[in-house]
Design a protein around this nucleic acid. Sequence first.
DNA 1: CCTTAACTTCACAAGTTTCTGAAAGAAGCG
DNA 2: CGCTTCTTTCAGAAACTTGTGAAGTTAAGG
Lengths: 164, 164
Amino acid sequence: MTTDAVGRDHEAVSQFVESFAAQLVEAGMQRMPARIFAALLSSDSGTLTSAELGEQLQVSPAAVSGGVRYLAQQHMVAREREPGSRRERYRVHSNQWYEALTNREAVIKRWEHALREGVNSLGPQTPAGRRMAETLAFFEFVDGEIAQMMERWRVRREELFGAD
Amino acid sequence: MTTDAVGRDHEAVSQFVESFAAQLVEAGMQRMPARIFAALLSSDSGTLTSAELGEQLQVSPAAVSGGVRYLAQQHMVAREREPGSRRERYRVHSNQWYEALTNREAVIKRWEHALREGVNSLGPQTPAGRRMAETLAFFEFVDGEIAQMMERWRVRREELFGAD
DNA sequence: CCTTAACTTCACAAGTTTCTGAAAGAAGCG
DNA sequence: CGCTTCTTTCAGAAACTTGTGAAGTTAAGG
């Protein structure tokens, strides 16, 4: 097993990056953002520069740029400028990225909006309209529940891993 | 507004179907399954035949076949054979399809598996390994919470809409 | 058991997405 | 203020996806 000075098994890490990225793709994320994100996740510092990403993933600077833009929009990574350099570095917030995952706030709101439209188009007293109203109620319910769940997770997390 | 005998506004319904489908697409679903699903959702009986779907969505039987196969695999629709006919009909279970949505059982399990691999590849005592272990714990937590949440929803649903 | 209606599969064409190289755009540093 | 280094934008090529028509399969009903 080929390891570097700090004992990192590049081969195994790269394999993990690709397989985790594949899961993200399956869940609907675009390939390049997924690979970039997985690479960041498996870096010890949680940060990588654009050049490091390009190197590790064997892609052009343009691809990194595009992928990072998407991730930043989704609040899954933060961009930081290294002081005194034109180098940008991208960071995954260890204990916050998966909160972003469940924080589908915007997505859920859009669904709720579409469903409300549906209830109106179909008529609230039609069978289809009633089905839709029920679904809408479900999303409203889930919305509130998720917030509470994340609260419980923060408590739990502290128990398991100590203060943040 | 053009309506049929039972007062359905085809124009408005079709518009809803397309806009709801668009939301599903945005959330990662393929276009054809999304459109088929939205059409089923907005039908009063909750069922449509292959021919009806093709007609309403203006697509070939082959496209319907492919889309339905996907939806059936995801347990979002059930196939029923009309007795005494070669006609198949597809049904959305009004109060169960969105449970399927949250029932990402298989997806979550695969993520957990990938993360476990990650912890091993990176080493549980490395910073990256620890980050991954924390994420894994999060998914395990969510897994259990969702089950409880759905239980609460069933109670809530009964309050709101009566027994099923 | 043959006919026929219905669904499925498959090869391919059209459309879309994704990545690249090249050029343009910022920003540190002399 | 201009040189240099890094990032972004953009047009186009390559790869992938998606939907179609046509052929193939299944099963009802005579």
